[in-house]
Computed example of a mutant assay.
Amino acid sequence: MREARTKILVSFNEQLDITTKTGPNDLVTNIDREVEAFYRDKIKKYYPASGIVGEESVNENTKPAVDGLLWIIDPIDGTMNFVKQRDHFASMIAVYQKDKGLRGYIYDIMQDKLYWGGADIGVYCNNEKMAPPRNKGLEGGLFGVGAPLLIKNYHNLQNVAMRSCGTRIYGCSGLQFIHVLNGQCVAYSSYLRPWDYAAGKVLAETLGLVVKTIDGKPIDMLSSSDVLVATKNAQKDITRIVQSIY
Rank of each mutant, 00 (worst) to 15 (best):
Q111W: 01
P132Y: 12
R103Y: 15
E60S: 15
R168D: 03
R134V: 12
N13V: 08
G141D: 01
N135E: 10
D41W: 05
L114C: 09
T19Y: 09
K98A: 13
T62R: 01
P218K: 12
S11K: 11
V242L: 13
M1G: 02
D112T: 05
N233T: 11
W116Q: 10
V35F: 14
A90H: 05
Q15S: 13
K152E: 14
C125R: 15
R168I: 11
G23C: 04
F89P: 00
L150I: 08
G183P: 05
A161F: 09
R33W: 00
Q176T: 15
A187F: 09
D120S: 15
I72P: 07
T19S: 07
G101V: 11
Y39M: 01
Y188G: 01
R168L: 12
T29Q: 08
V83P: 03
S11Y: 11
R86W: 09
C172Q: 08
P24N: 13
V211I: 10
R5Q: 03
G174P: 12
K217R: 13
Q15F: 06
G54R: 00
F82S: 01
G144Y: 14
K129L: 04
K136V: 06
K152W: 08
H155G: 00
G174S: 11
F89T: 06
N13F: 08
R33I: 03
N13E: 12
K217A: 14
A204I: 03
Y154I: 11
V123R: 04
I31C: 06
D196T: 08
V227L: 07
P24H: 14
I169R: 13
R5P: 07
D112W: 05
L138N: 13
L207N: 12
T20D: 07
V227E: 02
G216K: 02
S173G: 05
S91W: 04
Y115V: 03
H179S: 14
G68R: 02
